[in-house]
Design a protein around this nucleic acid. Structure first.
Lengths: 240, 240
DNA sequence: GTATTCCAGCTTGCATGGAAGATAGCGCTC
DNA sequence: GAGCGCTATCTTCCATGCAAGCTGGAATAC
């Protein structure tokens, strides 16, 4: 049973070049996170470390340590002597998540709008180009592309602050809410409003008005939250 | 040798209590975190897992797994085949930390000010009592007590939101900045202003004015940051 | 004296086995 | 038939062994 058979025939995480030094723990972490994101491990599913280790072709130790990291990220819960529980997301979790996003992203927009004008312009250009991508996707009624552009916009917003802690927080939060966003993508209505708000955020950044940028970013997320939460409630999605 | 695990255990989802299981991993995590907080493990110190395991009276495995959690918390860095490095805090880290605090705590104050009036009053009372404790400590020139009351005020602010993710983020951030706060406690000047701002925050919450609460909380942290960062720079504290 | 090479001793990464706790099902008692 | 207790079996937890990588210093060549 000492199989060093790396790579389980199936493809790895897309976009992740494992060219660098790859530890089994990192492999396990990436694989499990991907499986949770694409719902291969459905919420509520209770897996055993042994089973996952077998599937990934490694021993229990790296799986166990990856599970600790995932638990720290809030994606799973390690139940002592019972197994690894894939966490579900309740509407109340989405409320929590949105409040964190509103706080962090508002500050992020404010900070970017306070940068020197050259950097502001560069950021605004990048943000606008993603908004344009959203418009085009909207015109084609291509919801997945719309969602991807939307995600890229907000990701870019955070990255421009150059605050590793903010990036990390948003990254974690996005992991947690990814499934909910995918599910509700088809149900959303206010795409036009969303695009307009994106333009507004980029505009306030270009102008260099921190207060307005803060207000615009907050407004955008507040509206999205007020659109999403009733949706989840009405569809009775108890766990996502 | 047995490290006494201090009372603050990482809490999870609200509603789940009765966690009194004692695992060695939890012991190691709590002990190492306490040692980092009180600078028994000074920043820059590089310990080996074997050595820590010996000191804690356990084997390497639980220490290793605790180190993973601490790394996830941003307190240490696990260097492959070199050891566990206790991370230092540079002034730029403090800038990052303050921006996260400004975003999160502002939203927290806003949310509390939007609660029903009975809960607002209860929160404001609790906050005011801690502010009073700060005043008394200030009158006695008891800086440690002042710092403790200040910490309790802000902790209470976050806890009243009942958002586990916010609590967790602030908890992590506070762990990281604890040493810097302790160091600069003796150097701070604007204690009167700080107390007045605390009163202001509690007042806006009592009144139930979310916008004012947001502004007051932000203003408080912005001023504290602008007081602290030059202090760190002028004293040439490269790593804390 | 200086530069280079190599090795001994450190470190963690990972696998694996034993131990203990939790659980479900079976058999026994009433 | 219903309830209770025992046990078989599953799970994680933790200790430990082995392998591999990195580092510092000794020994050698010049």
């Amino acid at each position: 049973m000492r199989a060093q058979s790396r790579g389980s025939e199936g493809e790895r995480v897309p976009g992740e070049e494992t060219e660098k030094r790859t530890s089994l723990v990192d492999d396990a972490y990436a694989a499990m996170r991907a499986n949770i994101r694409d719902a291969t491990f459905a919420p509520g599913y209770q897996a055993s470390e042994q089973e996952i280790a077998l599937r990934l072709g490694m021993s229990r130790t790296p799986v166990h340590e990856a599970a600790i990291r995932l638990q720290e990220d809030g994606l799973v819960r390690v139940l002592p002597r019972k197994g690894i529980l894939i966490l579900a997301l309740a509407p109340d979790d989405m409320r929590e998540i949105y409040d964190v996003i509103i706080g962090i992203e508002g500050r992020a927009a404010e900070l970017i709008a306070a940068l020197p004008s050259a950097e502001r312009a560069a950021a605004a250009d990048a943000l606008d180009s993603w908004t344009t991508a959203m418009e085009e996707a909207h015109a084609r009624a291509d919801l997945p592309a719309w969602g991807e552009a939307d995600g890229a916009f907000h990701n870019m917003l955070i990255e421009h602050v150059r605050n590793g802690r903010m990036s990390r927080i948003m990254h974690t939060i996005n992991d947690q809410s990814h499934r909910a966003r995918m599910l509700t993508l088809n149900l959303r209505r206010g795409l036009d409003a969303s695009i307009a708000e994106h333009r507004q955020i980029a505009q306030t950044i270009r102008t260099g008005d921190p207060d307005a940028a803060l207000a615009a970013a907050r407004q955008h997320r507040l509206r999205a939250r007020d659109e999403l939460l009733p949706l989840l409630a009405s569809y009775g999605l108890k766990h996502l």
